[in-house]
Amino acid sequence: MIDKNKLRGSDIISGGLFGVLGIYILIESFQMPLSDSYGGVTTHWYVSPALMPIIIGIGMILLAIVIIVNGIRNGGKEQLAAERNEKRGKPFIDDNKIRFYAVMLPLVSIVFINLNTIDFYLNAVMYLLFTTCFFYLEDIVFLKKGITIATVFEIIIAALHFSGVDRKLTQVFFASMDLIGLAAVIVMNVSLIMYAKKAGNEVYMKKAKHIMLVSYIMPLLIVPLFKFALRVPMPHEGGFINLMSMVYYALR
């Protein structure tokens, strides 16, 4: 959490956002059936589906006003102005923003881009490998390098997936998208090892080993646990999970 004394400035903004949401809720609510019959139930004001949203909308606006007023009264305006001055002259992209992007990139990729097109085992490996490479090494140079690799591959996968080309590719060969994911994993892994070797740092080599251990072994435990022991189908079952199934049915 931000330091409590600095909260009053941000209160004005967050309170404002809540106020806007409250107004939106009210606007939507008044478009719902307020009287008349809907679905075989005669609707009076008190039965209307809009009743609760209206209460929520009003409550939210009132509370937002209290929060904003409280913020202004306790020097929020001055804080906002001071923050703006502080930011002036500094580069827009700082370390903090890069780190936030580095957290979000693999997370958004695994859910919004890779989920329905890349084998879930590989997807999990990609997420783990990317995230651990970014942060476990604690090296800003490699962080930036890794982000570049991951971004390039995710752009390729996103382009193929959202244009629908991936479906044509999988018709030719069912795991063709998995090969692209595999390529991303290999490129990332190789550059990790090369970077660690080049640095000649013992700690880096050890960390690289840990990274690979976690990235490849953990999904190898988690995926079969859900798929075979708890019998939960995975979001996308491509080459790797099919291979696991083959092994599972051969052993059973």
Binding site: I110, V111, A124, Y127, Y136, F226
Partner: peptide, 29 residues
């Protein structure tokens, strides 16, 4: 830095497992 990404994967599998639908993940993030 090693544990949290694994928790991340568990969060994703966990949200997916109960409803088995992508919308759960699209909401979660």
């Amino acid at each position: 830095q090693l544990l949290m990404p694994v928790v991340g994967v568990l969060c994703i599998v966990g949200s997916y497992a109960l409803g088995l639908k992508a919308i759960n993940l699209y909401l979660m993030v």
